[in-house]
């Protein structure tokens, strides 16, 4: 049994060779590793806004997504809004979930683990007394986020736990959410 035969059996749709190649190339040329991600947001009406992403910078030049992606954000009707889209904090959960899940697939491929199904369920608790300014001791954001993975794969329970742990270790959004980030907001 060789590594090659295992690798041809396991297919999670992740091109590990390409990822490892990129890692090697960017180790040699660290300037190319400097990326800038962008989003544009336009107010529509009330709490409804429409955001788009298309261009980003990386590998030393401007890059484009295949198409422009758009995202409507709003608040639900119980906030007297029209509910034209997910709330911004739900987008944060979506970002975290999709980042961790992509990581699970990549790490599984690298470790020769065939995934059959991966489902993440996320919950972020929030006390509205923060954003409503009722109690200054309560923070605006989540008081915690709970992610629960249900994974069916050709691996032991500990190996699956290790996949999920490694995915957190390498996740950009997990880092963004768990560590402070300087944010500069300017008005033109």
């Amino acid at each position: 049994m060789t590594a090659t035969t295992i690798q041809t059996q396991v297919d999670n749709g992740v091109n590990v060779e390409a990822l490892l190649g990129a890692r090697e190339a960017l180790t040699e040329a660290p300037e190319g590793a400097k990326f800038t991600w962008r989003a544009k947001c336009k107010w529509v009406n009330g709490t409804h806004s429409n955001s788009t992403v298309q261009g980003f910078f990386g590998l030393g030049e401007e890059q484009q997504h295949k198409t422009e992606f758009t995202f409507d954000a709003d608040h639900p009707e119980i906030f007297a809004s029209e509910d034209n889209g997910a709330t911004p904090v739900e987008y944060v959960l979506v970002g975290l979930a999709s980042c961790l899940t992509a990581g699970v697939a990549a790490v599984a491929q690298h470790r020769n683990i065939q995934l059959r199904s991966v489902t993440a369920t996320l919950e972020g608790g929030m006390d509205l007394q923060g954003i409503l300014g009722i109690d200054s001791d309560v923070r605006n954001g989540f008081d915690g986020i709970k992610v629960t993975y249900d994974i069916d794969a050709d691996a032991s329970r500990d190996d699956i736990k290790a996949l999920v742990a490694q995915s957190q270790k390498r996740s950009a959004v997990f880092d963004i959410v768990t560590n402070p980030t300087n944010v500069t907001v300017e008005v033109k």
């Binding site: 500990d158 736990k161 290790a162 742990a165 490694q166 957190q168 270790k169 997990f174 880092d175 959410v177 768990t178 560590n179 402070p180």
Partner: peptide
Amino acid sequence: GINGSKAQFSGSLRNVCALADL
């Protein structure tokens, strides 16, 4: 990091412990 007078700690404690246990 440090923000003003506040020392800030990562929310990744549970995961670094899980990694080490595994």
